[in-house]
Amino acid sequence: MTSELFQLVLMTVVTAATPLILASIGELVTERAGVLNLGVEGMMIMGAAMGFAGAYSSGSTAIGALCGILAGMAMAALFGLLTIGFAINQVAAGLALTIFGTGLSGLLGAGFVGLKRDRSDQLHIPGLSDLPYVGQLVFGEDLFVYVAFGLVAGVAWFLSRSRTGLALRATGDNHQSAHALGLSVRRMRFLATLFGGACAGLAGAYLTLAYTPFWSPGMTAGRGWIALALVVFASWKPWRVVLGALLFGGATVLQLHAQAAAFGLPGQLLSAVPYLATIVALVLLSSGARKNAAAPAALGQAFIAPR
């Protein structure tokens, strides 16, 4: 394989993995605090729509990314209000958020359908980016990729080393104890939810700013749900999110190449591969005790301060 082709294939894998990494690492933090936000798909699609709208209107990718982040956070705040404020069942609220986000993104993005803009710039460091095999791969990605990896490193450090990270893990482990000690369970959870929303929004923005040059309704196509599955797959450990996302990115790219190669398999069946792969991944990593051992003990439980 030539150097260019090698890098090209691997770069498409990274490109396909990046939105998953972004959305998953945010959801991982949310879940470690004990909140199961099933609305990732809804936050992501809003991030995609608003990210594109912001970038197209301002002409700046950075402003677009910021708009995506803010849209994701606004959605997350709504989710926080519902589940942390009103103690609503988190599964139902997550579904509501996704349905709402799908509709609202369509409404708000209606004026931008069919428009195109240039994809975000890629890093170029003279010399380094031109190295054979790895130059472009390591030093020539778009900036989102570096942000994604930086976020993973930051989250890994935050959770294992920082005092606030410790308080966050404690909140997800046992909210009654956390409350008894005077930790603010609800504030911690709300902030963790907001962080998850920001990441999901950025993941959505990546789709319209770097992955494709346009916005179209429903374009997240289940990536938010896959990101949720990846958190389980990663056993709630930050670096495993990267591993899982790259595997998924690989599967997606492989599937696209298989379609292009036209093996005679129907395209729809190949398109179903990522969804089936998600199920397989969930099944392989959920079996029995392993899942229970890794999941935050208070995940998905509403906290109501006792008397």
């Binding site: 519902l82 609503i88 579904l95 609202l104 369509g106 409404l107």
Partner: peptide
């Protein structure tokens, strides 16, 4: 467009869930 219906359905579900909390608390 249809997205209005979808968004409305999402809002409705949220309102229903809040109302449900209001009956219990």
């Amino acid at each position: 467009n249809n997205d209005m219906t979808r968004a409305f359905q999402g809002v409705l579900l949220m309102c229903v869930l809040i109302a449900d909390t209001a009956t219990r608390y």
